[in-house]
Simulated scan of single mutants.
Amino acid sequence: MIRMSSRSVDARSVKNRSLAIFAICALLAPGVLRAAETDCLVRDPSTMVKQDGTYWIYGTGRGVQQFSSTDRLHWTDRGPVFAVRPAWVSEAVPENRHNNAWAPDIHYFHGQYHLYYSYSSFGSQRSGIGVATNSTLDPRAWVDRGVVVQSPTSQGFNTIDPCIFVDFHGQPWLSFGSYFSGIYVVKIDPESGKTAAGAVPVKIATHPSPPYGDIEASAIIPHDGWYYLFVNWGSCCQGEKSTYNIRMGRSKNVTGPFLDKDGKDLKDGGGTIFLDNKKSDGSEVGPGHVGVLFDKDGDWLTTHYEWAKDKSGATTANVDKLTWDRDGWPRVATP
């Protein structure tokens, strides 16, 4: 029999207790949580941004909803960005009378945060995307800069669901679109935050079933020399019966072609499944609206699910750890 001194036993006991405490703390640390349904009940969450240790997301709702968090799991409602409807909306989208803003997105460039948001009415092509700026993310300090792009019925596209991003050369771009003729991308002037002079929207994705089908909620994520395009197929806003699912492709160029894993162009209806219609355990249905924050402790995916079982069916934001496979394709990390 091997005998240990009381000093050795005490040392091992202390070490074991220390390891146990470390393990518990690691599980609670924001950076180690790999997949999580949050307590934020919001539709169409923006890309998550971070300033001075505080995270922010923005979502569909009256005047654009805004939320803050210090751990990416528990969120505080900070009220609307716009207490009243922006002035340009009454002329561009007169049917939207109740200050209902849709699917915002946010990015920092040219010394300010730029928040892009859309106004429309359900099922209508008469829509518009505006931009507001803020140097600090103070929820009361947003300044509206007016309309960026709009889609009267004479145009083939629908200007909702904006995604703002900056390419590898520092040039900002905006992708947008819903149903009708698909998803488009257009160059943005970094100084004004609006469409660059002479810029023309370029189509980059459609749904395969005529007439163009269910496609919206685009996001373009620059990463490791590639531009990854995510889009939603299917229908939203039907609770547990929503058919939303997320597809993806990638390109070396902002304007495409974006090809899926099988080499099919998303403009021709391609799109590899990224997140299927429901979680494997049935707890949530209808993922939508991709955003990615590249943080110090990893890459974090934001989405919403149209229906969450433990939230009485409410639309709920999720924050998941994102990883990349050996071929460079993204996937949600397994908890």
Score class of each variant (00 low, 15 high):
52 D>M: 08
114 H>Y: 12
202 V>E: 08
89 V>N: 01
212 Y>D: 10
29 A>Y: 14
165 F>P: 01
219 A>M: 02
62 R>E: 06
183 I>S: 02
271 G>S: 05
330 P>V: 08
186 V>G: 04
143 V>E: 15
190 P>H: 07
208 P>E: 10
185 V>N: 03
89 V>L: 06
326 R>D: 14
74 H>L: 05
64 V>K: 00
110 H>N: 14
315 T>F: 02
164 I>D: 00
313 G>Q: 13
302 T>I: 08
32 V>Y: 15
6 S>Q: 15
135 S>V: 12
263 G>E: 08
335 P>F: 14
72 R>F: 11
35 A>E: 12
122 F>E: 07
1 M>K: 12
238 Q>D: 13
237 C>W: 09
20 A>F: 09
223 H>W: 14
306 E>T: 02
5 S>C: 11
138 D>E: 02
328 G>I: 13
65 Q>A: 06
44 D>R: 02
212 Y>C: 10
138 D>C: 04
140 R>A: 14
123 G>L: 11
44 D>K: 04
123 G>Q: 09
244 Y>R: 00
14 V>C: 11
79 G>W: 06
333 A>F: 08
215 I>K: 01
186 V>H: 05
51 Q>P: 01
219 A>L: 00
124 S>H: 10
59 G>Q: 00
248 M>L: 14
244 Y>T: 00
34 R>D: 10
20 A>S: 12
293 L>N: 04
24 I>P: 03
114 H>L: 05
181 S>W: 09
160 I>D: 00
265 D>A: 10
62 R>I: 07
300 W>Y: 13
134 N>P: 01
187 K>H: 10
30 P>T: 13
55 Y>D: 03
131 V>F: 00
231 V>Y: 02
158 N>A: 05
231 V>L: 10
284 E>K: 10
23 A>S: 13
2 I>Q: 12
186 V>K: 02
321 K>Y: 13
331 R>W: 09
146 G>E: 08
317 A>G: 01
305 Y>D: 05
116 Y>Q: 04
318 N>G: 07
10 D>N: 13
271 G>E: 05
152 P>C: 12
75 W>Y: 05
9 V>Y: 15
288 G>S: 10
28 L>G: 14
260 D>S: 12
314 A>W: 02
188 I>F: 06
172 P>I: 05
111 G>Y: 07
321 K>Q: 11
268 D>Q: 15
30 P>M: 09
113 Y>G: 03
243 T>D: 07
238 Q>G: 06
277 N>M: 09
276 D>K: 14
258 F>W: 08
187 K>Y: 03
231 V>W: 03
109 F>D: 04
97 R>W: 06
312 S>G: 10
232 N>F: 03
214 D>I: 02
307 W>Y: 13
93 V>C: 04
107 H>E: 13
244 Y>P: 00
285 V>H: 02
